[in-house]
Amino acid sequence: MRNSFLFYLYHGGVEGNRLDGVLPQFDRVLNDVCGLIDDTIRDLVVSSIWKASLEGFMWVLLDGGPSRAFSDTDIIMIEEDFNMLKDLFVADGDGLPRSLVEEEAKFYRQILSLFSLPTESLVQMLMASSEHISDSVNSKKYGQRYLGDAHTLIRVLCHKKDREASKFLKSHYRLPPSSGYDEGAGEDSSFSSPLVADIWKRSASFRWSEKGQSSFRSIKKRLQEATWR
């Protein structure tokens, strides 16, 4: 189930690789698990599977690699899939309590909502949070992220199918453009949005602290080696 979820979902495009392609397998696994365990621990076990599913879903969105880049239209479909996943675990009242499912999903929905923000807003949030980047890029679990986390914001920009985002990443972090745009598109250093251009100019002259500079080098190196290889 893990492989079909992580390596199928949205790989190469959202529309043709949506959640409904793996839901039957999910449903079978949940039924098998519930049939093997005592009712007294059913909710505890299924809740653990729900949490793991949420982390897997976010891995696809934030660390899924260059084969996954999401447009505004894609995000609408992904939000539908996210609701579909929640409904699977609620199971029309026969599964986990709706309140528990919604509570666990709250943080992940907030992360998903970042993809709907304009690139200008994401860049502003990133520049405001850059001093808080730690050296442990890959050590954080998703539950330890927060909406202003620079690691999360960079990953959202990396997977956002948006020309402004691609130009910003290439110009500021020397990262390849997202899979939605070819290399040539990234060569043009001009930005169609005056606000993004202004933010980029100001960020280029920003005086980073020694810790901030070290953290940026660390995160850029790891993103180049892992996220975009």
Rank of each mutant, 00 (worst) to 15 (best):
S134N: 13
S134D: 14
D135C: 15
D135V: 15
D135I: 15
S136N: 14
S136M: 12
S136R: 14
S136P: 01
S136Y: 15
V137Y: 15
N138K: 14
S139L: 11
S139F: 08
S139I: 01
S139Q: 13
K140T: 12
K140Y: 14
K140V: 13
K141V: 00
K141R: 10
K141F: 05
Y142D: 05
G143W: 05
Q144H: 07
R145P: 00
Y146Q: 11
L147K: 13
L147P: 08
L147I: 15
G148N: 14
G148C: 13
G148I: 05
G148E: 14
D149I: 10
A150F: 05
H151N: 15
H151T: 11
T152N: 02
T152L: 15
L153V: 09
L153G: 07
R155W: 11
R155E: 11
V156D: 08
L157K: 12
L157D: 09
C158Q: 04
C158K: 08
C158I: 08
H159G: 04
H159E: 01
H159C: 03
K160H: 09
K160A: 02
K160D: 01
R163G: 09
R163H: 12
R163N: 07
E164A: 06
E164T: 01
E164I: 00
A165Q: 09
A165P: 10
K167C: 02
K167I: 01
K167T: 01
K167F: 04
F168N: 01
F168K: 01
F168I: 01
F168V: 02
L169P: 05
L169F: 04
L169C: 06
K170C: 05
S171D: 12
S171W: 12
H172Y: 14
H172F: 15
H172D: 12
Y173A: 07
Y173D: 03
R174T: 06
P176H: 08
P177L: 05
P177V: 08
S178I: 03
S178Q: 10
S179Q: 02
S179I: 02
S179P: 00
S179A: 08
G180K: 06
G180L: 07
Y181H: 10
D182E: 05
D182C: 08
E183D: 05
A185D: 09
A185H: 11
A185G: 12
G186R: 06
G186W: 10
G186V: 04
G186H: 07
E187H: 11
S189G: 03
S189M: 07
S189L: 10
S190A: 13
S190L: 13
S190C: 08
S190R: 15
S190D: 12
S193G: 04
L195E: 13
A197K: 14
D198P: 04
D198I: 00
D198S: 12
I199F: 14
I199S: 07
I199W: 08
W200C: 03
K201H: 03
R202S: 13
R202Y: 06
R202D: 11
S203I: 03
S203H: 12
A204C: 12
A204P: 00
S205G: 07
F206N: 02
F206W: 02
F206K: 07
F206Y: 08
